[in-house]
């Protein structure tokens, strides 16, 4: 390891470890909600580490701005997509395998009512815009 550089290699190793841990969690965990936990949280940390190491390795202003944009976008969207997937699965009625939780919303599997309300809202919106045009 003659060309080991601390600022470049330590974050990349850290990030690669967490990305691999997240992949193992996605493969091995028992149900969707625990898999989402592994994929959303660990991969955010892992990709942050790898982007930091890549920024140090390239040490270029153009590369740094692109990496900062990707990192900011990942930080904004990874929790959001995990939330969307969990919400869709919950409303479509996928029960969690792990027991002992309390279903406070009580809407497990009631996606049709949500879709119905959405169609109603779309209809109202269309009617309103039609009135504006006419």
């Amino acid at each position: 390891m003659d060309d080991f550089r601390l600022a470049r290699d330590l974050p990349i190793l850290f990030g690669a470890f967490f990305v691999l841990t997240a992949a193992i969690g996605v493969v091995r965990f028992p149900d969707l909600y625990s898999r989402l936990h592994a994929s959303s949280k660990l991969v955010t940390l892992g990709s942050a580490g790898i982007f930091l190491g890549v920024a140090f390795a390239l040490s270029d202003a153009a590369a740094f701005t692109r990496l900062a944009a990707v990192l900011l976008f990942q930080f904004l969207t990874t929790p959001l997509s995990a939330y969307l997937i969990a919400q869709a699965a919950y409303l479509r009625g996928l029960p969690p395998i792990l027991t002992g939780g309390v279903d406070e919303w009580g809407a497990l599997g009631r996606a049709d009512e949500v879709a119905q309300a959405d169609r109603e809202a779309q209809r109202l919106l269309a009617a309103e815009s039609g009135e504006d045009e006419g």
């Binding site: 990030g15 996605v26 969707l32 994929s39 991969v43 390239l58 990942q74 997509s81 997937i85 699965a89």
Partner: peptide, 25 residues
């Protein structure tokens, strides 16, 4: 379930982003 597929697909895209950054280096 399809939720697992969507989740894994999202995770795959994040992994490929990381892979592209490493290929750039």
């Amino acid at each position: 379930s399809w939720g697992d597929r969507i989740m894994a697909f999202d995770f795959l895209s994040v992994n490929l982003v990381v892979l592209f950054a490493l290929i750039a280096v």
